[in-house]
């Protein structure tokens, strides 16, 4: 049974991730009064990249791209197998760390600065991700997803502020304006492509596919807040992602100083408030 679930996840998730990326590009284009690419464009792009020559500055670079993909796949599989949330967050951190190490090893000033910015981004969103997981623990008494799914109460009702903080950092994780400064989907920022600038060909394709896995994982995590009703969860995920696309199109790119300030001072504050409230509600 498990083998089938694992295989299905590994094969289906990039397809879903790619389709989500395709829908993203079409909606963005329509918001800008353009027609936009065909729906399957991300797949065409990845297939084209896979057929190109792998020009790397160092050999370690390509290794880190593979590690990034592998860790993201493992994280998603662990999520689908309903394992421990803290462990999943840790694996996610390992994945991003491989990407950062890969960018650092490439020796280009643009990718070094992109890697430094990504580290700062981790500093911004990791506390809120951990707070969300701890909040779920306070409500359900367990870190394990299988136990969380057995609760018949919608987590969102107990953890609304944590959900809001989570969607705020989702913008950083999904690399959307106003927080897309370590690397972004458009190449027009000052670091050109930032983290991924020295990657090309199959390595870049692997990073792209890994990003699809990560997107699916993050959206499933968002759905966890509404887990006891499947329809509500899917609707919430859709609305959440649409809001991200909307914010991307109506905001300019800000600086990392502003990001750090706004995720720590209001973001962490409301997360802590929510955590204290559910702790008092369930354990006192």
């Amino acid at each position: 049974m498990n083998i089938q679930i694992i295989a299905a996840t590994i094969l289906l998730a990039p397809v879903i991730g790619g389709l989500i990326a395709g829908i993203d590009r079409i909606i963005t284009a329509r918001m800008q009064h353009r027609v936009g690419p065909p729906l399957l464009q991300p797949f065409y792009d990845v297939l084209k990249l896979l057929g190109k020559e792998n020009i790397a500055v160092t050999n370690d670079q390509s290794l880190y791209a593979v590690l990034y993909l592998v860790f993201n796949v493992i994280t998603l599989v662990m999520f689908v197998l309903q394992m421990d949330l803290l462990l999943i967050l840790f694996m996610l951190l390992l994945a991003v760390a491989s990407l950062v190490l890969g960018a650092m090893s490439a020796n280009s000033p643009f990718s070094k600065i992109g890697a430094q910015r990504e580290l700062i981004a981790i500093l911004a969103y990791e506390p809120i991700l951990i707070s969300s997981v701890v909040g779920m623990y306070f409500v359900t008494g367990s870190f394990s997803i299988s136990r969380i799914l057995q609760i018949d109460r919608m987590l969102f009702i107990d953890l609304p502020l944590l959900f809001i903080a989570f969607t705020y950092v989702l913008t950083i994780k999904l690399r959307k304006s106003p927080f897309d400064f370590s690397t972004s989907h458009h190449g027009h920022q000052e670091l050109v492509k930032g983290l991924t600038i020295e990657y090309s060909g199959p390595s870049l394709a692997m990073i792209e596919i890994a990003h699809w896995y990560e997107t699916v994982l993050l959206l499933l995590f968002a759905g966890l807040f509404f887990a006891n009703n499947l329809y509500v969860a899917v609707a919430a995920i859709a609305i959440c992602y649409f809001a991200e696309i909307l914010v991307d199109n109506i905001a300019a790119r800000l600086t990392w100083q502003i990001m750090l300030k706004s995720t720590w001072i209001p973001g962490l504050l409301i997360a802590v408030v929510n955590m204290v409230w559910v702790y008092i509600k369930y354990h006192v």
């Binding site: 918001m31 800008q32 304006s177 027009h188 920022q189 199109n249 300019a252 790119r253």
Partner: peptide, 8 residues
Amino acid sequence: ADAFGFES
């Protein structure tokens, strides 16, 4: 507008 990331 493109330089500060505001594509639309």
